[in-house]
Design a protein around this nucleic acid. Structure first.
Lengths: 322, 322
DNA sequence: CCCATTAATGCTCCGAATGAGCATATAGGT
DNA sequence: ACCTATATGCTCATTCGGAGCATTAATGGG
């Protein structure tokens, strides 16, 4: 062994040779309205809200929270750091300065958005249409994505890589008898990127016949995919859905909200059983007749559970592929 | 509503008002040797390997990987971004410049470390001794931590806060009849920090009678706790343990490695059942007589499973509190 | 050689969690 | 009085995970 890890890999802590880089914050702010998962966008729906890293607050999280709450007058119930991107691909100019982007996921309830930068709430499936399986498998997957990804896999150099690609495609999109896994949103996006099926993949000139799905600038679709994946995983073991609900709601409304996020249907009775067992909600005593059929109880979230437990298992009773 | 989220919260994307900040990388590099989980440290075991962000590689991850591999000649099987810290508390000087630290978790096998910055492998329980429950509940928890945290909880202002603190303490440390949850490493550290039981909590002067546990500079103990928590969660659903194992090994050796990381004992038969069911290993045909009793089969990791599945459930058959 | 010790392995039991689906209850509309 | 749509209660079968008994196969001493 000629050199140690620490000697060269991590030169010197105190040396002042840190390259100056620009740091920005990018937020994936989510609400669910009318059974649709929505995300706050700016610039003609082509970008996620982004700002320079110049918070005067003690922590990033506190700063982001107070920002949003001051502006929307809605408490941002939940904030979580997503990922920090610092790839060279993210550079806008050809200069040596690099851009670091720290992304956050925030949950809130939709409020009217207006202002100079054209803020708008958009259904997130507008950007990633293949992610919505609530009405069954989208035709888009079978008709456009699957054949083109198979072609991409078959076009690989050696047979080992062909096999690997076919495997990744099958897993990510639930092909070859596998079932759809809604949590693989990021893997799916990255696969489409790698296969050159999304325009972002090619910096020079347009991609031929790109897939449906509205574009965003820079790597904001990737950041959105990261946020969706994280949220879809999180709702299964932490009671974060309630941050998206009004004070009181029916169990069906709660289920529809989860379904909107997960992009798939749930088994109603089992969903209720789970919510009951966990003691996540309590009766308000009121009843809603807005549902069309038998009136539903209105319930509210029992905030106490946040104290009572460590990791609450709000596991989803997902239906088997219909 | 007077202003939108986007208008003020995220001023202008193209404005050149990004504050210049320093960005550094901090690595939690883990190996398991002689049934002990070890972490690579520098500076007399008082810091994690840290370097400026000046990679000439395309991505942070690729850069970190090639760094470590070039130096150790061991493949870093697994690398994952942990968290980005940018709190004002992290500033070293009083100036306006802020420090952003992007932390990574890396898994490898231990190699000899030597060099100027005094690299050493250290048992991670040296820094967080209350995290090792392999020999049952550490006396430290019952004798020092529990009473002092209870006192801290009781000393809170109003009764609501007292109740909340008591709850957090009970959950994090498995008190009041609750069971120990090894994944809450970060919450435990943060609780001790908040209660002022670790010296890092107080920047002015020493804390009275700090808990046992070696210190690290800056917030490196927090970063280590973040890494441990992430790893303890990850081994349950992804086959990452194998990155820490030699080519061939016995099932008991594998179990001891998992136990070292999780800080608790597992049920042997159920552990084997799980590994079998998942098809994670295959026989090498060889046998080890080094174990003292009946000779054990030597097995190797079936790398194919990484391709075969999306999220492999390497769930741990954890024993109930003995 | 017999026996105690130490592991490796094979199996069984049980209870909790989960996926599915039947049956009944209660509204509004025709 | 039906029909439709939703709410809600319950049962059933399967799977999974926690525990523990029993057996097998090596080593080291008497």
């Amino acid at each position: 062994m000629t050199a140690s890890v620490a000697t060269r890999a991590f030169p010197t802590l105190t040396e002042a040779d840190h390259t100056a880089v620009r740091v920005e914050l990018t937020a994936v702010i989510v609400a669910v309205t009318a059974e649709e998962p929505r995300v706050l966008t700016i610039q003609d729906s082509q970008a996620l809200p982004t700002g320079p890293f110049t918070s005067d607050h003690r922590t990033l999280q506190i700063g982001l929270r107070s920002w949003v709450e001051r502006q929307t007058h809605h408490p941002l119930g939940y904030i979580e750091q997503l990922y920090t991107f610092a790839d060279r691909d993210r550079m806008h100019d050809g200069a040596g300065e690099r851009l670091v982007s720290i992304s956050y996921l925030g949950l809130t309830r939709e409020a009217h958005a207006s202002g100079e930068r054209d803020p708008r709430w958009q259904t997130w499936y507008r950007f990633l249409p293949w992610e919505d399986w609530r009405a069954g498998a989208p035709a888009l997957v079978a008709q456009a994505i699957a054949p083109r990804l198979r072609a991409w896999a078959t076009g690989a150099g050696d047979s080992a890589m062909r096999r690997e690609r076919r495997n990744r495609v099958a897993i990510a999109f639930g092909l070859s008898g596998r079932s759809w896994n809604e949590e693989l949103t990021l893997q799916r996006y990255e696969l489409l990127f790698e296969a050159g099926l999304v325009p972002e993949a090619n910096r020079r000139g347009p991609v031929d016949d790109p897939l449906p799905g509205a574009l965003m600038r820079h790597d904001h679709r990737r950041i959105l995919a990261t946020g969706i994946a994280r949220l879809r995983a999180k709702i299964k073991y932490r009671p974060v859905v309630f941050e998206l609900m009004p004070e009181s709601f029916t169990l069906l409304a709660l289920q529809r909200t989860v379904e909107a996020l997960a992009g798939r249907r749930l088994h109603k009775q089992n969903f209720r059983r789970l919510i009951d067992q966990q003691g996540l909600v309590e009766d308000t005593g009121e009843i809603s007749t807005q549902t069309g059929g038998r009136p539903a109880r209105l319930v509210r979230f029992r905030r106490e559970v946040l104290l009572e437990r460590a990791v609450v298992g709000t596991k989803l009773p997902l239906s088997r592929p219909a």
